[in-house]
Computed example of a mutant assay.
Amino acid sequence: MTNKQIIIAAIKARPGIRTPELVEETSIDNPQSYIALEIDRGEILVDKVASELGGRHINTYRINPENPPDETLNPRQRVVKARVAAPATEAAFSAALSSRGDLHISDGRKTIQLSPSQTAGLIAYLDRINVDQVMKAAGIA
């Protein structure tokens, strides 16, 4: 689990948990910095309460039941209009392998970016197959 997931789980388990208790339970210093976006989006609610010892107020945290944070912590999806483009030609195809191992493949309309580990997996897969036989069977070779 990430620090953010640990903090959200602790808040869910103990609504109204205070900052010092959250730090003690999770062993994560400055937990609010990990959940700042969830607080800004109103998914985690923050209330200030007086300290038992006096002095500064302390934050308490609880999950907003009407707008809870995403359990999987996936980014929120945006809906965008697809643009209409001319059909891609073979001349528009490009592939680029960076020195870090990132692979970018584009057909002029769409681009795929693979991480170094995904690139290694793709290359290992292609190494295991006989491309000439596959292309001949497809009637291309």
Score class of each variant (00 low, 15 high):
R83I: 07
T26E: 11
A9R: 15
L122Y: 04
P116D: 11
Q32P: 02
V84Y: 01
V46F: 04
K48A: 10
V131Y: 02
A85F: 06
G121D: 13
N30K: 09
D107K: 01
R41D: 15
S106F: 03
P65V: 05
A88T: 04
L122W: 04
D40I: 13
G139S: 10
R109N: 13
S117W: 01
R83F: 01
T60L: 12
K136E: 14
I123G: 04
T19I: 01
A124W: 02
A91Q: 12
L126N: 07
V79G: 07
Q77W: 01
D47W: 00
R62S: 15
L37T: 14
I8S: 00
E24I: 01
V80H: 05
I8E: 03
R78P: 00
L103V: 08
N67W: 02
E24R: 14
S98Y: 00
I63A: 05
S27K: 15
T26G: 07
S117I: 06
Y34R: 05
S27R: 15
R78T: 11
G121T: 04
L114G: 03
G121V: 02
M135W: 00
R100G: 02
I105L: 15
I39Y: 10
R18T: 12
I28V: 12
L53P: 00
Q32G: 13
Q77V: 07
P116I: 09
A13E: 14
A36D: 12
P65G: 07
T89E: 12
N74M: 09
I58T: 08
I129D: 10
